[in-house]
Nucleic acid binder design. Structure first.
Length: 273
DNA sequence: ACGAGGTCCTGCGAGC
DNA sequence: TGCTCGCAGGACCTCG
């Protein structure tokens, strides 16, 4: 389940192998992950293009080409990007295989194929990214901006944190962890979060995302870095996946519910208010 | 306008 | 032991 730290790790891993390289050949093996373009058109329009930059936006890896177009990869649940020396075509879950001028291969693998790959013009990318909320790790993202993202509507604070239009890059794992760290009950309405709580939540969320990047993300099951390894932040999780185990802060048993948005929500009834 | 709920996809583990 | 079923969840879609 690649969220911001995982996608950031992937982008950092593959960037040095991609920037400056020319795409020699593309093979789409599972066409249903492509959005808005057919497999043959995708293959043809990428051949011969030079890669100018690799970045992350929300939970997307963005590969910018010399001509301004972007290949936007959204791994969602089980997608992974890997740069390797040799082709990995024997793997039945490979959806796209890219041959680079350096001799290396870029592979997009996705077991459940819930992921999505777009090829966007510069203008289409501008429209795409405009629909996403602020980046939590950018300098301009203050506690006040978080408070603004939580204001309005009557949705639960956890759902608001995960709403990509309000805030970019936070998914289920880090929403659970940040709310635990800030001592906020995930089912509370977002608009009831006070200024002081928003300040605390901002501090905890930013810290958790940064520390997770330092540990190359959280591998619960499927996530792999851009070099094919597991992340290491799972050992630092305080509530996610820890139902019925003692809360590290107050010792009460951690509760798993599906009351918020029918998603797995882990929280401590003792110290999250 | 906004929010709730269904849908996609496959592997895995619980339970019978 | 082998099968079925529900769950994992991000983001889009439809409906109210």
């Amino acid at each position: 389940m690649p969220e911001l730290p995982e996608v950031e790790t992937i982008a950092r891993d593959i960037r040095p192998h991609l920037v400056g390289a020319v795409i020699r050949g593309v093979r789409v093996l599972k066409a249903d992950i492509l959005r808005g373009i057919g497999p043959r058109a995708f293959e043809r329009s990428l051949a011969g293009c030079r890669i100018a930059a690799v970045s992350r936006r929300a939970k997307h890896v963005v590969i910018r080409l010399d001509d301004g177009r972007r290949v936007v990869i959204q791994p969602r649940m089980t997608g992974s990007l890997l740069v390797s020396e040799a082709p990995v075509t024997a793997d039945r879950y490979v959806t796209i295989a890219v041959r680079l001028s350096t001799g290396r291969q870029l592979t997009y693998r996705d077991v459940r194929r819930l992921g999505a790959v777009h090829l966007l013009s510069a203008e289409a990318w501008t429209r795409y990214t405009a629909r996403l909320g602020p980046e939590p790790l950018e300098a301009g993202f203050t506690a006040a901006r978080l408070a603004a993202a939580l204001a309005g509507g009557r949705l639960a604070v956890k759902k608001a944190l995960m709403d990509q239009r309000r805030l970019a890059g936070v998914g289920n794992i880090y929403a659970n962890e940040a709310l635990w760290s800030a001592g906020i009950d995930p089912s509370r309405l977002a608009r009831t979060v006070t200024t002081a709580e928003a300040r605390r939540l901002h501090h905890e969320l930013v810290g958790i995302l940064r520390r997770s990047i330092r540990r190359r993300g959280t591998t619960v099951r499927d996530y792999r870095t851009g070099t094919g390894e597991a992340g290491a932040y799972q050992s630092r999780l305080n509530v996610y996946g820890r139902a019925r185990r003692p809360c590290p802060r107050c010792g009460r048993r951690i509760v798993l519910t599906h009351a918020v948005d029918a998603r797995a929500t882990y929280f401590c009834p003792g110290c999250q208010r």
